[in-house]
Design a protein around this nucleic acid. Structure first.
Lengths: 200, 200
DNA sequence: GTCTATACTGAGATAGAC
DNA sequence: GTCTATCTCAGTATAGAC
């Protein structure tokens, strides 16, 4: 039998994925999990820390996979600098596995970013990995002026979030649904070209 | 003397820009505007419709300017199809004027998108203009497969939102602050190259 | 240590007097 | 048109049972 904490995490993940963070109340979570309201505060402290717990459970494996792929690529390159495509591949591909296992969760992560709660959560769980990948991108683009590079990283973040959100919402008017793997391929082509554009 | 409705709109715009939509309570708004809580519901119906009103007041002029610039570019091209850069210029440049007049508001609009409330609001105020611009982009990229094109529009939306949010939040770790005009130039270079990347 | 019951504060919304 | 009073529901905090 699952413990209370597990039940809360699983239920919260499902409801957050369905209705977003702000769209899910703690009372909904406890009702679906069959636990008491205060149990959330006992185990997590607050709604935001519960979110943090949900993200942490998934972010760990994804980030590990990312770093493994990156190091593999570095090893395979035998001293040659990585290409932008190779770095992006290591960064984006692991999301496919998560999406296959729990597609809703990837959308949820995209939404998190969209809901403006990510700055806080993201720092805790993705900061280190992003520093590593931004460094790798920098090495792949040594000639790009620093400011230009940093803004392109910024642009990339926006595109990634938008891609994760996935289903054609917002201003994507035409409904270009496709599998997550294909989406990543498209995103890689788009971002690689953007990063390689002539600098200022 | 300003009417109640005006006072509410002005105050809400300022507070939303400072603290975001969810971060601003209606009670804060009425306290700063010096009006009664129920006045908001009388004039607007709900908090979300108040937001809609705030956006509407600014979106109109921006969208008009966008369309003017686009038609000017079409006229100047004398039958030649527009380039991607020309379309993006007409789409993005008008935001500079708004930013100069009220930079906070541009950030606010980016945040709106980020907070996931945009899908609803955006449809009402930007749908028509976006259809026009997506059509123009399509003509500039006739050889791109349709699915690929649609996803690139999607990616573009994410980058634009991220750019508007502006101040280096989220995963932009290094703090690449620069003026809005410069930002637009960088974004144009990035997006143009992304759109022109080889298709699938 | 874990969990339940319950109370507190502040949010958006609404009905009805004026 | 405006304002008071009130409603429901949110997240949070705490006291105490087991």
């Amino acid at each position: 039998m699952k413990g209370t904490k597990q039940k809360i995490l699983d239920t919260a993940e499902r409801l957050f994925a369905d209705s977003g963070y702000t769209g899910t109340s703690m009372r909904q979570i406890i009702a679906n999990a069959g636990v008491n309201l205060a149990a959330i505060h006992y185990h997590f402290g607050s709604k935001e820390e519960l979110l943090d717990g949900v993200v942490a459970r998934r972010a760990g494996p994804v980030n590990e996979e990312r770093l493994v792929l990156l190091e593999n690529a570095v090893a395979a390159a035998k001293g040659r600098p990585l290409t932008v495509e190779e770095v992006l591949e290591a960064l984006l591909r692991p999301m496919v596995a998560v999406a296959r296992q729990n597609e809703q969760f990837v959308r949820f992560m995209g939404r998190l970013f969209m809901e403006g709660l990510m700055p806080h959560i993201a720092k805790r769980h993705f900061h280190q990995v992003m520093v590593r990948f931004i460094g790798a991108l920098r090495e792949a683009l040594p000639e790009l002026p620093e400011q230009e590079f940093q803004w392109r990283v910024h642009f990339m973040m926006g595109s990634i979030a938008q891609t994760m959100c996935g289903s054609p919402e917002g201003l994507n008017l035409l409904g270009a649904a496709c599998g997550f793997e294909e989406r990543i391929d498209r995103l890689k082509r788009f971002l690689s070209a953007g990063f390689r554009a002539p600098g200022e």
